[in-house]
Design a protein around this nucleic acid. Sequence first.
DNA 1: CCAGAGGCTGAATGCCTGTTCAGCCACAGA
DNA 2: TCTGTGGCTGAACAGGCATTCAGCCTCTGG
Lengths: 235, 235
Amino acid sequence: MVYHYGGARGASAAKREAKQRIIDAAIELYAEHGLGAVTLKQIAALAEVSAPLVIHHFGSTSGLRTACDQEAARRIYAYKTMAVAMGEQFTFEAMLRQSAAHRPLLRYLTQALMAGGEEVDALMDQLVDDAVAYTTDAVEQGLVRPSPNERHRAAMLLLQGLGAMMLHRQMKRLIGTSPMDDPPEEWGPYILTVFDIYAHGVFTPGAYDHALSQITAPSEAPSAPPQTSQRGPDS
Amino acid sequence: MVYHYGGARGASAAKREAKQRIIDAAIELYAEHGLGAVTLKQIAALAEVSAPLVIHHFGSTSGLRTACDQEAARRIYAYKTMAVAMGEQFTFEAMLRQSAAHRPLLRYLTQALMAGGEEVDALMDQLVDDAVAYTTDAVEQGLVRPSPNERHRAAMLLLQGLGAMMLHRQMKRLIGTSPMDDPPEEWGPYILTVFDIYAHGVFTPGAYDHALSQITAPSEAPSAPPQTSQRGPDS
DNA sequence: CCAGAGGCTGAATGCCTGTTCAGCCACAGA
DNA sequence: TCTGTGGCTGAACAGGCATTCAGCCTCTGG
């Protein structure tokens, strides 16, 4: 179609360029529409390339999927490495400034996590490892409360955070903004809401004790106060 | 295929039965594989019915989708009505006992929420309304802390809870159990983890103040403590 | 200047999709 | 007992899918 063989650059550079364009297009479309709802032609069209070329480079569509998983893992690893290398310079602001670039990547990750797969499962394990390391560090600095199970908490925070991102359309509708749709300057309501929950908690101490006793010995109390925490799975 | 015209029941009963079986099959498959990744024949096969019959009843596949949305809304409404009718009898236990029956429904809901659509958006708004009512009630009873924005908090809790359910495969892997995969008796680790977060919060009071000041006036502090709350969108 | 290599394409292939059509079978009403 | 109605089907259809193939065009190495 477009097919312009970009002038002076070498063949290997052109190859890498088209191959990369295909992966980028695939990640973007998979992120947007889900892994099962994207056709080869859509990817080829977005990458401004013919469909057979995709097969030529990746063997098949599932080969492309694998390549996307690897690319996602690679980019996330690179991001983490960079963050470590920046050290003190990696401020909250610096993180926000990069957010737009990683947006499709993050949405692809959530889609891939839903589908599962060896590659992606391993990546998720790594993310949990990192989250545990971060929070443990923050606990020692007195910024984060200790947890009876640091790993479970870190995993759940990750699942909740990523999961909420999957519903970004609804988030945008319900709280007016979402990190997936808007630039960081407009994340205010999102950040405030998350902080509201994660800073103070949701339950009062009394409710926590009450609910816990009801769960461990369910038949003794007829009222149902802990509904809120169960709203996800049940209502 | 099977096609057994079940003996003594009338034609209208048989019709309703097949139609219902199709909707059930569709909801189950859409819930499992995503809205864009299910074929008409798969649905027909699971419902033990021919593909043309699905078209005959719903006009087209998108007609079936609409019917599924309506059915999902109907069932959720029925569930809420029942809960209200049970009143004091609607205990935590009673809720759990019903969970398995509503499992595909809930997964369908999350898939539909991702895709969006008029019908489903309205349903989500209703769910938020209910969540606000519940939490406001619980605040008055002293079980839940008040929030600066009750609606935003209720919406975010819903998004986080539903979102985490979408990643139930990962949840199962990471904390060993998930409400989508296991019976209520095994939800222990899930409930404890959610309670850990929602009861005590994650941040210490000092970290909250520090982070808040850094966000509202970002350029004054070079360190980056509030990473944890941003892990969802960024790392 | 002349092969050879390789990125890349359009056209062709066979499979699978949603949908249409004509007709079957069980039941309801006369 | 006959006739109509309606749930339901297999077969047929066009269109779209991933994939294969033969060949083009540009660059590279000699």
